[in-house]
Computed example of a mutant assay.
Amino acid sequence: MKVDLFDFDLPTDLIALRPARPRDAARMLVVQGDAPFADCGVLDLPKLLRKGDVLVFNDTRVIPAQLEGKRGEARIGATLHKRLDLRRWQAFIRNAKRLKPQDRVEFGAGVTAIAEERHDDGSFTLAFEGDEPVEVLLERAGRMPLPPYIAGKRKTDEQDREDYQTMFAREDGAVAAPTAALHFTDRLATALDEAGIGRETLTLHVGAGTFLPVKADDTDDHQMHAEFGTIDAATVDRLNAARAAGGRLIAVGTTSLRLLESATGEDGIIRAFSADTSIFITPGYTFRAVDGLMTNFHLPKSTLMMLVSSLMGTQRMQDVYAHAIAQGYRFYSYGDSSLLIP
Protein backbone atom coordinates (compact mmCIF):
# COMPACT_ATOMS: atom_id res chain seq x y z
CA MET A 1 0.00 0.00 0.00
CA LYS A 2 1.10 3.57 -0.62
CA VAL A 3 2.43 5.22 2.54
CA ASP A 4 0.74 8.49 1.53
CA LEU A 5 -2.63 6.90 2.38
CA PHE A 6 -1.71 7.31 6.05
CA ASP A 7 -0.77 10.98 5.92
CA PHE A 8 -2.54 13.93 7.55
CA ASP A 9 -1.74 17.53 8.51
CA LEU A 10 -1.36 18.24 12.22
CA PRO A 11 -1.15 21.76 13.66
CA THR A 12 2.04 21.84 15.71
CA ASP A 13 0.26 23.39 18.69
CA LEU A 14 -1.60 20.08 19.19
CA ILE A 15 1.63 18.21 20.01
CA ALA A 16 1.56 17.72 23.80
CA LEU A 17 4.81 18.68 25.54
CA ARG A 18 3.64 17.62 29.01
CA PRO A 19 1.05 15.05 30.16
CA ALA A 20 -2.33 15.93 31.60
CA ARG A 21 -2.47 16.61 35.35
CA PRO A 22 -3.58 14.33 36.87
CA ARG A 23 -2.74 11.67 34.30
CA ASP A 24 -6.27 10.28 34.16
CA ALA A 25 -7.68 13.75 33.33
CA ALA A 26 -6.79 13.25 29.65
CA ARG A 27 -9.54 13.24 27.04
CA MET A 28 -10.47 10.06 25.19
CA LEU A 29 -12.12 9.80 21.78
CA VAL A 30 -14.29 6.66 21.63
CA VAL A 31 -14.76 4.97 18.25
CA GLN A 32 -16.98 1.89 18.17
CA GLY A 33 -17.62 0.39 14.74
CA ASP A 34 -19.64 2.77 12.59
CA ALA A 35 -21.28 4.54 15.55
CA PRO A 36 -20.88 8.32 15.91
CA PHE A 37 -17.71 9.43 17.66
CA ALA A 38 -18.00 10.04 21.41
CA ASP A 39 -15.86 12.69 23.10
CA CYS A 40 -15.16 11.23 26.54
CA GLY A 41 -12.44 11.18 29.17
CA VAL A 42 -10.05 8.46 30.31
CA LEU A 43 -11.96 8.29 33.61
CA ASP A 44 -15.02 7.11 31.63
CA LEU A 45 -13.24 3.87 30.70
CA PRO A 46 -14.87 1.65 33.39
CA LYS A 47 -18.36 2.38 32.07
CA LEU A 48 -17.30 2.02 28.43
CA LEU A 49 -16.11 -1.56 28.90
CA ARG A 50 -18.03 -4.66 30.00
CA LYS A 51 -17.66 -6.84 33.06
CA GLY A 52 -15.32 -9.68 32.07
CA ASP A 53 -13.29 -7.61 29.60
CA VAL A 54 -9.54 -7.62 30.17
CA LEU A 55 -7.13 -4.73 29.66
CA VAL A 56 -3.63 -5.89 28.65
CA PHE A 57 -0.73 -3.63 29.67
CA ASN A 58 2.96 -3.58 28.81
CA ASP A 59 5.06 -3.59 32.01
CA THR A 60 8.34 -2.60 30.38
CA ARG A 61 10.28 0.13 32.16
CA VAL A 62 11.99 2.95 30.29
CA ILE A 63 15.70 3.28 31.00
CA PRO A 64 17.63 6.58 30.65
CA ALA A 65 18.96 5.42 27.30
CA GLN A 66 20.06 8.72 25.75
CA LEU A 67 23.72 9.58 26.16
CA GLU A 68 25.91 12.53 25.18
CA GLY A 69 29.64 11.97 24.88
CA LYS A 70 32.89 12.62 23.06
CA ARG A 71 35.30 10.69 20.88
CA GLY A 72 38.34 12.90 21.13
CA GLU A 73 37.00 16.36 20.30
CA ALA A 74 34.00 15.07 18.35
CA ARG A 75 30.63 15.19 20.06
CA ILE A 76 28.74 11.90 19.84
CA GLY A 77 25.09 11.30 20.74
CA ALA A 78 23.82 7.77 21.36
CA THR A 79 20.32 6.41 21.80
CA LEU A 80 20.34 2.78 22.91
CA HIS A 81 17.57 0.80 21.25
CA LYS A 82 18.23 -2.92 21.70
CA ARG A 83 20.11 -4.92 24.33
CA LEU A 84 22.41 -7.53 22.84
CA ASP A 85 23.81 -8.98 26.08
CA LEU A 86 24.70 -7.84 29.61
CA ARG A 87 27.19 -5.17 28.47
CA ARG A 88 26.42 -4.56 24.79
CA TRP A 89 23.63 -2.48 23.26
CA GLN A 90 22.81 -1.53 19.70
CA ALA A 91 22.52 2.25 19.45
CA PHE A 92 21.54 4.92 16.97
CA ILE A 93 24.39 7.42 16.75
CA ARG A 94 24.30 11.15 16.12
CA ASN A 95 27.40 12.41 14.29
CA ALA A 96 28.15 8.81 13.30
CA LYS A 97 30.56 9.92 10.55
CA ARG A 98 33.01 10.85 13.33
CA LEU A 99 32.89 7.36 14.85
CA LYS A 100 34.81 4.30 13.67
CA PRO A 101 34.77 0.70 14.90
CA GLN A 102 36.90 0.22 18.05
CA ASP A 103 36.73 3.93 18.98
CA ARG A 104 36.16 4.68 22.67
CA VAL A 105 33.38 7.13 23.56
CA GLU A 106 33.44 8.95 26.92
CA PHE A 107 29.92 9.76 28.16
CA GLY A 108 30.93 11.48 31.39
CA ALA A 109 30.43 10.41 35.03
CA GLY A 110 33.01 7.67 34.46
CA VAL A 111 30.94 5.94 31.77
CA THR A 112 32.77 4.77 28.64
CA ALA A 113 31.96 2.40 25.78
CA ILE A 114 33.72 0.89 22.79
CA ALA A 115 32.01 1.28 19.41
CA GLU A 116 32.55 -2.32 18.37
CA GLU A 117 30.71 -2.59 15.09
CA ARG A 118 28.81 -0.46 12.60
CA HIS A 119 25.56 -2.01 11.30
CA ASP A 120 24.00 -1.67 7.85
CA ASP A 121 21.42 0.83 9.15
CA GLY A 122 24.16 3.10 10.48
CA SER A 123 23.73 2.11 14.12
CA PHE A 124 26.62 0.80 16.26
CA THR A 125 27.15 -1.90 18.83
CA LEU A 126 28.34 -0.18 22.02
CA ALA A 127 30.19 -2.32 24.59
CA PHE A 128 30.16 -0.60 27.99
CA GLU A 129 33.40 -0.84 29.95
CA GLY A 130 33.80 -1.66 33.64
CA ASP A 131 32.13 -4.02 36.09
CA GLU A 132 29.08 -2.02 37.15
CA PRO A 133 25.75 -3.10 35.62
CA VAL A 134 24.92 -1.05 32.53
CA GLU A 135 21.64 0.04 34.19
CA VAL A 136 23.69 1.69 36.97
CA LEU A 137 25.86 3.46 34.41
CA LEU A 138 22.81 4.76 32.56
CA GLU A 139 21.21 6.08 35.74
CA ARG A 140 24.39 8.06 36.28
CA ALA A 141 25.05 9.38 32.78
CA GLY A 142 21.86 8.93 30.74
CA ARG A 143 18.71 10.95 30.08
CA MET A 144 15.18 9.80 29.48
CA PRO A 145 14.83 9.26 25.73
CA LEU A 146 11.95 11.58 24.95
CA PRO A 147 10.71 11.32 21.36
CA PRO A 148 12.11 13.87 18.89
CA TYR A 149 8.83 15.79 18.58
CA ILE A 150 9.08 16.67 22.29
CA ALA A 151 12.85 16.83 22.74
CA GLY A 152 13.10 19.15 19.74
CA LYS A 153 10.86 21.69 21.47
CA ARG A 154 12.13 21.63 25.05
CA LYS A 155 14.88 20.10 27.17
CA THR A 156 14.40 16.80 28.98
CA ASP A 157 14.23 17.40 32.73
CA GLU A 158 13.89 15.52 36.02
CA GLN A 159 10.07 15.63 35.79
CA ASP A 160 10.27 13.43 32.70
CA ARG A 161 11.81 10.62 34.75
CA GLU A 162 8.42 10.30 36.43
CA ASP A 163 6.14 11.47 33.63
CA TYR A 164 7.60 9.14 30.98
CA GLN A 165 7.04 5.99 33.04
CA THR A 166 3.77 4.09 33.47
CA MET A 167 2.43 2.88 36.80
CA PHE A 168 2.91 -0.70 35.53
CA ALA A 169 6.65 -0.32 34.75
CA ARG A 170 8.54 -3.28 36.21
CA GLU A 171 10.97 -4.76 33.66
CA ASP A 172 13.95 -2.60 32.66
CA GLY A 173 14.69 -2.44 28.95
CA ALA A 174 12.53 -0.01 26.97
CA VAL A 175 13.86 3.11 25.32
CA ALA A 176 10.37 4.43 24.61
CA ALA A 177 7.34 4.36 26.91
CA PRO A 178 4.20 2.34 26.13
CA THR A 179 2.42 5.68 26.22
CA ALA A 180 -1.22 4.53 26.18
CA ALA A 181 -0.75 3.37 29.77
CA LEU A 182 0.61 6.75 30.94
CA HIS A 183 -3.03 7.76 31.56
CA PHE A 184 -3.60 5.17 34.29
CA THR A 185 -3.63 5.99 38.00
CA ASP A 186 -4.48 4.13 41.20
CA ARG A 187 -7.88 5.86 41.14
CA LEU A 188 -8.67 4.57 37.67
CA ALA A 189 -7.37 1.08 38.45
CA THR A 190 -9.66 0.87 41.47
CA ALA A 191 -12.67 1.93 39.40
CA LEU A 192 -11.85 -0.75 36.80
CA ASP A 193 -11.59 -3.40 39.52
CA GLU A 194 -14.97 -2.39 40.89
CA ALA A 195 -16.48 -2.65 37.41
CA GLY A 196 -15.24 -6.25 37.04
CA ILE A 197 -12.70 -5.41 34.33
CA GLY A 198 -9.55 -7.52 34.47
CA ARG A 199 -5.92 -6.44 34.10
CA GLU A 200 -3.01 -8.48 32.77
CA THR A 201 0.57 -7.57 31.85
CA LEU A 202 3.10 -8.70 29.29
CA THR A 203 6.53 -7.30 28.43
CA LEU A 204 7.68 -5.78 25.14
CA HIS A 205 10.85 -3.72 25.35
CA VAL A 206 10.02 -0.84 23.04
CA GLY A 207 12.92 0.22 20.82
CA ALA A 208 13.81 3.61 19.39
CA GLY A 209 12.80 2.25 16.01
CA THR A 210 9.24 3.15 16.97
CA PHE A 211 10.14 6.81 16.24
CA LEU A 212 11.74 6.17 12.86
CA PRO A 213 9.74 7.53 9.93
CA VAL A 214 8.64 5.23 7.14
CA LYS A 215 10.95 6.36 4.36
CA ALA A 216 9.64 3.93 1.74
CA ASP A 217 6.87 4.96 -0.65
CA ASP A 218 5.16 1.58 -0.26
CA THR A 219 4.53 -0.39 2.93
CA ASP A 220 5.97 -3.53 1.28
CA ASP A 221 9.38 -1.87 1.24
CA HIS A 222 9.52 -0.91 4.93
CA GLN A 223 11.69 -2.96 7.31
CA MET A 224 10.51 -3.10 10.94
CA HIS A 225 13.06 -3.19 13.77
CA ALA A 226 12.80 -6.24 16.03
CA GLU A 227 11.90 -5.87 19.72
CA PHE A 228 12.08 -8.48 22.47
CA GLY A 229 8.86 -9.56 24.16
CA THR A 230 7.61 -12.16 26.59
CA ILE A 231 4.26 -13.49 27.82
CA ASP A 232 4.36 -16.24 30.45
CA ALA A 233 2.20 -19.37 30.42
CA ALA A 234 0.07 -18.38 33.44
CA THR A 235 -0.88 -15.05 31.83
CA VAL A 236 -1.67 -16.81 28.56
CA ASP A 237 -3.97 -19.26 30.35
CA ARG A 238 -5.91 -16.41 31.98
CA LEU A 239 -6.22 -14.50 28.71
CA ASN A 240 -7.48 -17.53 26.81
CA ALA A 241 -9.94 -18.31 29.62
CA ALA A 242 -11.27 -14.73 29.59
CA ARG A 243 -11.91 -14.93 25.85
CA ALA A 244 -13.56 -18.34 26.18
CA ALA A 245 -15.90 -16.86 28.80
CA GLY A 246 -16.96 -14.09 26.40
CA GLY A 247 -14.66 -11.33 27.62
CA ARG A 248 -12.93 -9.01 25.20
CA LEU A 249 -9.18 -8.41 25.20
CA ILE A 250 -8.46 -4.69 24.96
CA ALA A 251 -4.80 -3.95 24.33
CA VAL A 252 -3.56 -0.84 26.11
CA GLY A 253 -1.16 0.45 23.52
CA THR A 254 0.13 -0.75 20.20
CA THR A 255 3.05 -2.52 21.90
CA SER A 256 0.70 -4.79 23.84
CA LEU A 257 -1.33 -5.39 20.68
CA ARG A 258 1.68 -6.33 18.58
CA LEU A 259 2.97 -8.81 21.15
CA LEU A 260 -0.46 -10.39 21.63
CA GLU A 261 -0.82 -10.83 17.89
CA SER A 262 2.72 -12.24 17.65
CA ALA A 263 1.90 -14.84 20.30
CA THR A 264 -1.42 -15.95 18.79
CA GLY A 265 -1.80 -18.74 16.23
CA GLU A 266 -4.20 -18.92 13.32
CA ASP A 267 -6.47 -20.94 15.62
CA GLY A 268 -6.93 -17.86 17.82
CA ILE A 269 -5.12 -19.43 20.79
CA ILE A 270 -2.57 -17.26 22.58
CA ARG A 271 0.60 -19.14 23.50
CA ALA A 272 3.54 -18.41 25.79
CA PHE A 273 6.09 -16.26 23.98
CA SER A 274 9.69 -15.20 24.59
CA ALA A 275 11.44 -13.95 21.47
CA ASP A 276 12.00 -11.00 19.17
CA THR A 277 9.06 -9.78 17.13
CA SER A 278 9.12 -7.52 14.08
CA ILE A 279 5.43 -7.88 13.26
CA PHE A 280 4.24 -5.15 10.86
CA ILE A 281 0.46 -4.75 10.81
CA THR A 282 -1.04 -3.06 7.76
CA PRO A 283 -4.58 -3.00 6.30
CA GLY A 284 -5.65 -6.47 5.23
CA TYR A 285 -4.24 -8.08 8.39
CA THR A 286 -6.62 -10.45 10.20
CA PHE A 287 -6.55 -9.83 13.96
CA ARG A 288 -6.37 -13.01 16.03
CA ALA A 289 -6.15 -11.90 19.65
CA VAL A 290 -7.43 -8.41 20.34
CA ASP A 291 -10.98 -7.06 20.33
CA GLY A 292 -10.07 -3.43 20.82
CA LEU A 293 -7.26 -0.98 21.44
CA MET A 294 -6.70 1.98 23.74
CA THR A 295 -4.03 4.17 22.19
CA ASN A 296 -2.79 7.74 21.82
CA PHE A 297 -2.85 9.66 18.53
CA HIS A 298 0.03 8.73 16.23
CA LEU A 299 2.33 10.40 13.72
CA PRO A 300 1.33 10.69 10.07
CA LYS A 301 2.70 8.01 7.73
CA SER A 302 3.90 5.99 10.73
CA THR A 303 3.69 2.22 11.23
CA LEU A 304 1.34 2.90 14.15
CA MET A 305 -1.04 4.90 11.95
CA MET A 306 -1.02 1.88 9.65
CA LEU A 307 -1.80 -0.42 12.58
CA VAL A 308 -4.85 1.53 13.77
CA SER A 309 -6.04 1.78 10.17
CA SER A 310 -5.78 -2.01 9.96
CA LEU A 311 -8.03 -2.32 13.00
CA MET A 312 -10.66 0.28 12.11
CA GLY A 313 -10.31 0.92 8.36
CA THR A 314 -8.16 3.46 6.56
CA GLN A 315 -10.88 5.98 5.74
CA ARG A 316 -12.45 5.57 9.19
CA MET A 317 -9.15 6.52 10.83
CA GLN A 318 -8.74 9.51 8.55
CA ASP A 319 -12.17 10.64 9.77
CA VAL A 320 -11.19 9.93 13.39
CA TYR A 321 -8.06 12.06 13.12
CA ALA A 322 -9.87 14.88 11.34
CA HIS A 323 -12.39 14.93 14.23
CA ALA A 324 -9.60 14.83 16.84
CA ILE A 325 -7.80 17.76 15.21
CA ALA A 326 -11.01 19.78 14.85
CA GLN A 327 -11.85 19.17 18.52
CA GLY A 328 -8.37 20.10 19.76
CA TYR A 329 -7.25 16.71 21.09
CA ARG A 330 -3.60 16.64 22.18
CA PHE A 331 -1.38 14.35 20.10
CA TYR A 332 1.48 11.88 20.54
CA SER A 333 3.26 10.49 23.61
CA TYR A 334 2.04 12.96 26.25
CA GLY A 335 -1.27 13.58 24.51
CA ASP A 336 -4.86 12.37 24.80
CA SER A 337 -6.22 8.88 24.21
CA SER A 338 -8.61 7.00 21.98
CA LEU A 339 -10.57 3.80 22.48
CA LEU A 340 -10.94 1.88 19.23
CA ILE A 341 -13.38 -1.04 19.10
CA PRO A 342 -14.08 -2.43 15.60
Rank of each mutant, 00 (worst) to 15 (best):
N58W: 04
N58V: 00
D59F: 02
D59Q: 14
T60V: 09
T60S: 15
T60P: 06
R61Q: 12
R61K: 15
R61E: 14
R61V: 00
V62D: 07
V62K: 03
V62C: 09
I63R: 04
A65Y: 07
Q66P: 00
Q66H: 13
L67I: 00
L67K: 09
L67V: 00
L67N: 02
L67R: 04
G69A: 08
G69S: 09
K70E: 11
R71S: 14
R71T: 05
R71F: 04
G72I: 12
E73Q: 07
E73L: 09
R75Y: 03
R75M: 02
I76M: 07
G77F: 05
G77W: 04
G77M: 04
G77L: 10
A78I: 00
T79L: 15
T79K: 03
T79V: 15
T79P: 01
H81T: 13
K82S: 13
R83K: 15
L84C: 07
D85C: 01
D85Q: 11
L86R: 14
L86T: 10
R87E: 06
R88Y: 06
R88C: 13
R88M: 05
W89R: 14
W89P: 04
A91D: 08
I93S: 07
R94H: 11
K97Q: 13
K97L: 08
K97W: 01
R98N: 08
R98G: 04
L99P: 05
K100W: 06
K100H: 13
Q102R: 08
Q102W: 04
D103Q: 06
R104K: 12
R104I: 12
V105G: 07
E106C: 05
F107W: 08
F107R: 00
F107H: 01
G108M: 11
G108E: 08
G108K: 05
A109G: 03
A109C: 10
V111H: 07
V111L: 14
V111G: 11
A113F: 13
A113C: 06
I114A: 09
I114S: 09
I114F: 01
A115R: 11
E117W: 05
R118F: 11
R118D: 10
R118G: 08
D120R: 12
D120E: 15
D120H: 12
D121T: 07
D121K: 08
D121A: 05
G122F: 01
G122P: 02
F124L: 00
T125F: 00
L126E: 07
L126C: 02
L126V: 00
A127D: 05
F128K: 02
E129V: 13
G130N: 11
D131E: 15
D131W: 02
D131T: 15
D131R: 12
E132C: 04
E132I: 00
P133G: 01
P133M: 02
V134K: 10
V134A: 01
E135P: 06
E135S: 15
V136E: 15
V136Q: 14
L137K: 14
L138R: 10
L138Q: 11
E139Y: 01
E139A: 14
R140G: 04
R140A: 14
A141I: 14
A141Q: 03
G142I: 00
R143A: 12
R143L: 15
R143F: 10
P145G: 10
P145D: 03
L146E: 08
P147Q: 06
P147E: 10
P147M: 03
P147A: 03
Y149Q: 09
Y149E: 09
